[in-house]
Design a protein around this nucleic acid. Sequence first.
DNA 1: GGCATTTACTTGTATAATACAAACATATAC
DNA 2: GTATATGTTTGTATTATACAAGTAAATGCC
Lengths: 145, 145
Amino acid sequence: MQKENQNAVERIEYELTTLIRRAVYLDISDKKIGHLERSVYLLLRHLDEFGPSRLKALAETFNLDISTLSRQASAIEAKGYISRFSDPTDGRVSLFRLTDIGREKLIIDKKMRIERYHAMLENWSNKEKEIFGELLERMNEALID
Amino acid sequence: MQKENQNAVERIEYELTTLIRRAVYLDISDKKIGHLERSVYLLLRHLDEFGPSRLKALAETFNLDISTLSRQASAIEAKGYISRFSDPTDGRVSLFRLTDIGREKLIIDKKMRIERYHAMLENWSNKEKEIFGELLERMNEALID
DNA sequence: GGCATTTACTTGTATAATACAAACATATAC
DNA sequence: GTATATGTTTGTATTATACAAGTAAATGCC
């Protein structure tokens, strides 16, 4: 039993390492899903899901330096996908929210991503997809430090 | 049924995107597993598994430009983890193989990675781990273009 | 058998994402 | 009201990457 368990974990380690390499590549290749960079997609998705956020909170969410988020957000703002407004209770804070254009772009890309996944997983049963989603969610929980 | 399927795929899309962000972060953070960079680990692992390889083949394996692999390999060679020798049948080709030190480093890091995964997945049943490994492998198949 | 073309790799250069540190603006504490 | 803390921006350095030019070796063709 110990041995089987060892093998299963070893396989997970191997496959996850491979998956990350392939997925990161896919994201920057010609076959990239949609039009938004992964970082932009994640930021828009976060604002859509959690509402207006400040830089510091976004940096923590994405495990990136605040300066990095500051530049990312400025770039995305320049594209018109998010807009900035001052926190009325604290003049130091910039809050960002999705613009209508940003929401539209997000919806389009999300749709494309989901379609791509549908195609990749077309020969999986519904049950398998459900289980995979659940296990991935648990894996993500486990990845939080 | 269509709806459930849709939700399952949506969840997979969401969780995978999140997983990639977390895993990439983990890899460069203080809590990084082991001592080797992910790229170095992957290269050593590949040489261990498939034997001596040339740059072009490695670049294709990792979906990276040959020039990138050339620099990576030189750096890893300088650390003494791999060594270079000429293909006796083709003087243009450099072949790389693991050195004893490289193999040792690989074994150490692999062990640490597997231990970390063991810890993260400690409350998963053996059956769940097996299924997750299998589904990840199928996902990786699906990610090949 | 020697020149043209192809192949494998290295090196030069540019770009993008990132972190860290310094600067700046605003808020809080005493 | 000044000193300190907080939130953000900007300057600088580093790293990973791609693309293009250069170099060395092999292959093809007459």
